[in-house]
């Protein structure tokens, strides 16, 4: 069995937005049969936690020189472009 991919979900304070986003990602990927683990963090913590993640999904700006792929999106809050972002997440996870 494959180890679940690790997604780091970042927002400003790691309380509100990333909670919704993490849950939405887990549910969307579960529907597609993909198991992932998510961890929430503040944007300022991304750099120190990036090494332990396969992908970073963020709703707020994060450093752009990380070794891990980053997806910046509001889709899980606003619904705009959600399907596309889910596809992008899957593609980036598979590319790893």
């Amino acid at each position: 069995m494959n180890t679940p991919k690790r997604i780091l979900v970042a927002c400003g304070t790691a309380i509100a937005t990333s909670t919704v986003v993490a849950k939405a990602i887990e549910e969307a990927l579960k529907e597609k049969g993909i198991a992932v683990t998510t961890r929430q963090c503040k944007a300022t913590e991304v750099r120190s936690l990036a090494d332990n993640a396969d992908l970073i999904v963020t709703t707020t700006p994060v450093p752009n020189d990380l070794d891990v792929p980053v997806i910046k999106t509001l889709a899980f809050l606003t619904g705009i472009g959600k399907e596309e972002v889910i596809e992008e997440i899957i593609k980036k996870l598979e590319g790893k």
């Binding site: 509100a16 909670t19 849950k23 929430q40 709703t59 707020t60 700006p61 910046k72 999106t73 509001l74």
Partner: peptide, 30 residues
């Protein structure tokens, strides 16, 4: 704009979230 702060968003609906513990208010956030 949350994801690109240099962009301006004209807003007409505002929810101010008074959150006590993140996990307890997940339903409200969703």
């Amino acid at each position: 704009n949350m994801v690109s702060p240099t962009e301006t968003v004209p807003v007409r609906l505002i929810f101010v979230l008074a959150l006590e513990q993140p996990k307890a208010q997940i339903e409200m956030l969703q």
